[in-house]
Design a protein around this nucleic acid. Structure first.
Lengths: 269, 269
DNA sequence: AGTAGTGGTTCATATTGTGAACCCTTGTTT
DNA sequence: AAACAAGGGTTCACAATATGAACCACTACT
């Protein structure tokens, strides 16, 4: 491991719960020598990545990060971090995949890719997603601001025969999404389109969008569903990471629990 | 220079005007060997501080910065970066010094410190500053959003006999502040209180607040004014830096020009 | 006065970083 | 199509740099 990597690694120990760390404490956390850690901190401080609280002598993240983050934010569009994972998802599942972002109270399409594997496939031709009728929408309701539920409940347009139009029914389904980590739509927006989606998060730690797949209903077997789910998780982690966020532990746990379920049918060791 | 410092130094070459840099180009910019630079970039990429544009192979700032900046922002209050420079300012000038921050269309006191040097001194007992009558306010008008001028022009309360109450007069004075880099108030808010102020900027690159001194009028000699001005600049640079900003070149130039003026009376080489 | 905690420093040791020269790929010129 | 240039990435002998045990200085508590 290079010295530079070790130096940068020190920054991982600063979190919102532990914003200031003393030299000795950081040594223990990183399991490194004091002299080494001190020199590394000097380098970081010189570059403005950490600064020392003049009172406590503890170290904390420095102002330089604000500058660089600003440049990144202004400079790299959200879509840049979406393309690669979305292609992988479409490739691995063979299904049309897309990412939507929440802006205000609306979910907009950020990017969509179709897999060429099947000649019959779902074409994405919408650019905003109704919250109550799509898997991305359900992700927003389940993991976004509670205020979104009021917005959704206010316009329960029936797109198909299976569209959820009862507020209480919607609430129940959103609860399932919360506890499973996956949103599921079986023809509720367009007939014969089954969709699975998972939430995305950005650097604020809040819900920022969703990634989902849309399959033609006739192809949607339990086996495919398993494959899609596992690849949705991979995509969600990658995109969330690229947006400066981390997948909340509760969501990771929900995913793990959901994916473990089918295996329970097999005899365990 | 440590390897870690050299590695971190690479990040300085990324700006809003130059968001993506190729390996060879970065070598030329940093004047370093290609292999070295490549390894440094690998370290940075491993930590998420840079990422590679998969199409162009150019490097750009990475998502990790967003996370860390978020932690810094949530964790370190603005006031933390103000205390030390403000104490230095009060110490060096012997005058009451304070920092105000712009929130919406209002300037609030963030922190004030009195110098114990003189027994007669200005006590700061306000917590919002009228834009038209204080040096901090003039900084906001000169370097903040143009919309502030409309707000200010809408309530030109006369606090003293010298308070500017004519909109056109105010505009002229703000122009002087813009071109000199310094705001000056001679008893316009409180009688016998002369004040000098300079603008502060944050990571967005916009006006974020002001740092200023308040002197009793009888003490305010041209010599003191020079001393205050030079120390205001030092404080403004330090605070701006700590807020993740940089002093705009135009402001730096204005300061340099203003400070150079008295020397012009001396014969030049 | 003693103890245990902190941040910071030293110096011999050896791990690590370094850069000239290399390869490979792509796109352009002749 | 052959030659060329320019970019990213890699190699390996060499040397600079990082490392950590032991150290100092300071503070707070016993």
């Amino acid at each position: 491991m290079s010295s530079a990597s070790k130096t940068l690694d020190l920054l991982t120990y600063f979190t919102v719960d532990r914003p200031e760390i003393g030299l000795t404490r950081l040594c223990r956390l990183a399991d490194r020598d004091k002299a080494t850690t001190y020199r590394h901190l000097q380098s970081l401080e010189g570059a403005g990545f950490v600064e020392q609280n003049p009172l406590t002598k503890n170290y904390r993240l420095g102002p330089r990060l604000l500058q660089l983050a600003q440049i990144r934010e202004v400079t790299v569009p959200r879509s840049a971090g979406v393309e690669a994972p979305l292609n992988v998802l479409a490739d691995a599942t063979g299904e049309t995949s897309h990412v939507s972002v929440l802006s205000g109270q609306t979910l907009y399409t950020l990017e969509a890719v179709e897999s060429p594997r099947h000649s019959i496939r779902v074409i994405m031709d919408v650019d905003t997603f109704p919250l109550h009728a799509t898997s991305s929408g359900h992700c927003a309701l389940a993991f976004g601001s509670p205020a979104l539920m009021d917005v959704a409940a206010g316009s329960l347009t029936a797109f198909t025969e299976t569209t959820v139009t009862d507020p209480q029914d919607l609430r129940t389904r959103v609860e399932v999404t919360q506890s499973s980590g996956f949103a599921r739509s079986t023809g509720s927006f367009e007939d014969d389109v089954y969709s699975l989606g998972v939430p995305l998060f950005d650097q604020t730690g809040l819900f920022a969008g969703a990634v989902s797949t849309a399959s033609v209903a006739s192809r949607f077997t339990p086996e495919l569903e398993q494959i899609i789910k596992s690849h949705l998780i991979i995509a969600a982690r990658a995109i969330t990471r690229n947006w400066g966020g981390t997948v909340p532990a509760s969501v990771e746990a929900a995913w793990a629990a959901t994916l473990a379920q089918p295996q329970e049918l097999e005899p365990s060791t």
